[in-house]
Design a binder for these strands. Structure first.
Lengths: 186, 186
DNA sequence: CTCCTCATGTAAACAATGTCAACATCCGCC
DNA sequence: GGCGGATGTTGACATTGTTTACATGAGGAG
């Protein structure tokens, strides 16, 4: 029996439940709205229980961001494998769509808060993600480095500007079309 | 006499003093480190005093971000006026250098927190800044819209990636040179 | 000049939050 | 069968943003 009707003293698999509930709250309420007490209540556990699995709220956030980077990497590899002809364009589109589809998670991944205090796990996950990205893009970061960085900057900037609502859609304009158009324009 | 030895009951010009001290603390400690009580203490005033000039901490942050956008606009117009030949490149470089020179202020300007709750003042200041930017870039947003947005995205993304330390400098590499190189690569 | 008003500042309190220490419960291994 | 450590609970503490009631004094009305 996993979760019996009367709440058992031991949750069985907290940590995972915390992370899942945290992800939902994060996307719905934003990083600020994700309080440890609310989270604990949502999972049906006391306020101090999360501390058995995460050293602090920042550690919880870090774990969340790490899963975000893993998911991000997976999406990137998948789309690159699916479009062997022109992986760059496909990856750029996926990059932006990932940001739009996981807005608050994406913001958390690049949160200055988290990297302010050490957080080596986050740094590692980010490095892994971008290393695979670099690897897929093509081997020579020597010669085409500036071009690769420019492409990355453009895609990342587009993601954030769209996320912040800074780039407004025109009447009857399609988001994906706009993304493709901007990415396409060198 | 500006600040007399015995602190007068009325500060004279709080609000301005608050904003200036807040800007210093912001750049030194980050947005999280900017607490209302610390700020009040830094200015030599009680913890509740700021509420006579700002409805909430968010309002204080908003005012700070607004000044940031004004300063940003001024820098942009100045550099555009100074380089009539090729304003685009000069503005791009200034854009990135502004972000690097006012890291936490720049982050605050694009903080999702602030725009989450109305904050029409911030929205207005941002629109004004980007309108002048659009105006300088060139009239036809109709035809060259995608190109303009792509340039904006590239510059903005480069700013954030550099800010977050995501783009690492190589040994003996100059920041400005890297910026110019990336901006130059279409 | 005097007085009175209102903007500005203070003090004390409240609710909420992250966090910790002391205690309770129970899973799994000898 | 019993014991130990992992896991969860309770209660408390410090800190923060914020509000309410009160204090101060600058500056105009008479």
């Amino acid at each position: 029996m996993s979760t019996s009707a009367n709440s058992p003293y031991h949750h069985g698999n907290l940590r995972q439940a915390l992370l899942e509930a945290a992800l939902i709250i994060l996307e719905k309420e934003g990083e600020t709205g994700l309080g440890l007490r609310d989270l604990a209540r949502a999972v049906g556990v006391s306020a101090a229980a999360p501390y058995r699995h995460f050293d602090s709220r920042a550690a919880l956030l870090e774990a969340l961001a790490v899963t975000g980077f893993q998911r991000f990497s997976a999406a990137m590899e998948a789309v690159a494998a699916g479009n062997p002809a022109d992986p760059m364009a496909a990856m750029g589109k996926t990059y932006v769509l990932f940001a739009l589809g996981n807005a608050n998670l994406f913001r958390l991944m690049f949160s200055p808060q988290l990297k302010k205090d050490g957080r080596p796990g986050l740094r590692m996950a980010a490095d892994v993600a971008f290393d695979t990205l670099r690897h897929v893009v093509g081997g020579d970061m020597q010669t085409g480095r500036a071009r690769a960085l420019a492409a990355w900057a453009k895609v990342h900037g587009l993601s954030i500007l769209l996320l912040d609502g800074q780039i407004a859609l025109r009447a009857g304009e399609d988001t994906e079309a706009l993304i493709a158009e901007i990415i396409g324009s060198l």
